[in-house]
Amino acid sequence: MKKIFSSIICLLLLTATISLPAFAAEKSTELAADAKSAILIERDTGSILYDKNSHEKLPPASMTKIMTMILIMEALEQNKLSMNEKVRTSEYAASMGGSQIFLETGEEMTVEEMLRGISIGSANDASVAMAEKIAGSEEEFVDMMNKKVKELGLKDTKFQNATGLPEKDHYSSAYDMAMMAKELLRHENITKFTGTYESYLRESTDKKFWLVNTNKLVKFYPGVDGLKTGFTNEAKFCLTATAKKNGMRVVAVVFGAPSTKVRNAQVSKMLDYAFAKYVTHPIYKKGQSLAEVKVSKGDTKKIQSLTSEPISVLTKKGEKIESIKKTIKLNENLKAPVKKGDKIGTITIKKDGKVLAKSNLIASKDVKQAGWWKLFKRSFGMFNKTN
C-alpha cells in the first residue's frame, strides 16, 4: 500500500513539474500567439513589457531598412548630407526588384524624396541609391550597417544588403530590431516620414508616383507613426511598429506572422496592452544640458553635456515614483578634438538599487585642438595665478 501511495505522489509531482512550465509558456505567448517571435518595449527606458523568442535569429525582410534609415539620419545629423541634396541613381540601384519607386538609371531625386520612398513605400531602389550616396557602394554601406550593429551592442544581427531582399546569412531578431527602432527614434524627424500614410513623388512630371504606407496601422491605429513592415516568402509577415500615447512611446516587433491581418492584429494587441498597463514619467527632454565637462587641450576649456534622447521612468499605472537617484558620470579625460554629438558621459536613474533608465550624454558642440600659442598663453596665465 505504501509503495502504491508513494508511486501516486511521485506521479503527481512529476505531472506538476511538467505542466507548470507549459502553462507559463502559454501565458507568455498569448499576445503574439501566431508569430515566430515578438517583443514589446517602452522606448525611453528600453524596458521589455512582453517577450516571445525575442533572440531567435530570423530573416527580417524590409525591416532591414530601419538600419538603412539610421545611417541616413546620422549622415544628415552630421551634415554629411542635406535634405535638398540630389542623389543620382546608378544602373545597379535601378535594377532592384521587389518594392520600388521605379527609379531609372541616371534619374535624380533629393535625399528627402528618397527617404520618403524608403520610409513610406519600402523602396529597394531608393535604399541602394542612398547606400551608394553615403558609402560609395552597397558593400561599403553594409559594412557600416554591421559596424553600427556592434556599436549598439546587438548580438543577433548580420546584414548582407541594405534592403532586406533574401540573401544567405542575412538575419536579425525581435530584440535587436526593437533596439534599432529605439535608436532610429532618437532622430525625432523620422516619424514625419514613417508616420505619413500617403504622399507623391515626381509630382511635376507625367510620371507622378503615388506612395501608400505599407504599414496600414499608421492610418488605422491612433498614435502609430512608424516604423517598418517586411515580407518575403521566407520571412513571412513582419512589422516593427511604434506608437505614442499620453507621452509614452512603445515599440512592438513581430516576426513571421502568417498574414498581414494577423500581423497587424497582434501588434495592435501588444500596443493595447502597453497603453492599458503602463505609464511613463518624463525626467529629461532630449538636448537638455546637465553638466559641464572639462576639455583638455581644446580651443574651449569646457563643454556642456546634453541628453541624447528623452529620459523617462516607467511604472505600472497607479504606481508612484519616489526616492529615485540620478547619477551623472562624465568623461574626466576628455581631450580635443571633440565632435558635436560625441558620447562624453552617462546618466543612470535608480530606485532601491535597481536601474530604471540609463542613457548617454553627448557633446553640445565641436571643440577643436588649441594651437600651441593659445596653449602657451593659457599655461602662462595659470603660472601667473599661482605666483
Rank of each mutant, 00 (worst) to 15 (best):
V251R: 00
V251P: 00
V251C: 04
V251N: 00
A252I: 07
V253Q: 06
V254H: 01
A257K: 01
T260I: 13
T260S: 14
V262Q: 14
N264D: 10
S268Q: 07
M270A: 03
L271E: 00
D272E: 14
A274I: 02
F275G: 03
Y278G: 12
V279L: 09
Y284I: 05
K285N: 10
K286L: 11
K286N: 09
G287C: 12
Q288N: 11
S289T: 10
S289C: 11
L290Y: 14
A291R: 02
S296N: 06
S296R: 14
D299M: 13
T300R: 15
K301P: 07
Q304N: 11
Q304G: 10
L306E: 02
L306R: 04
I311W: 00
I311A: 01
S312K: 15
K317Y: 08
I321C: 04
K325Y: 14
T327R: 08
L330P: 03
K335C: 12
K339V: 03
G341Y: 08
K343H: 03
K343W: 09
T348M: 10
K350G: 01
K351G: 12
K351C: 10
D352C: 03
G353K: 01
K354V: 15
L356H: 02
S359G: 00
S364N: 11
S364M: 03
D366T: 13
D366F: 14
V367R: 07
K368R: 04
W372H: 06
W372Q: 01
F376E: 03
K377V: 06
K377R: 09
F380N: 02
M382T: 08
F383W: 01
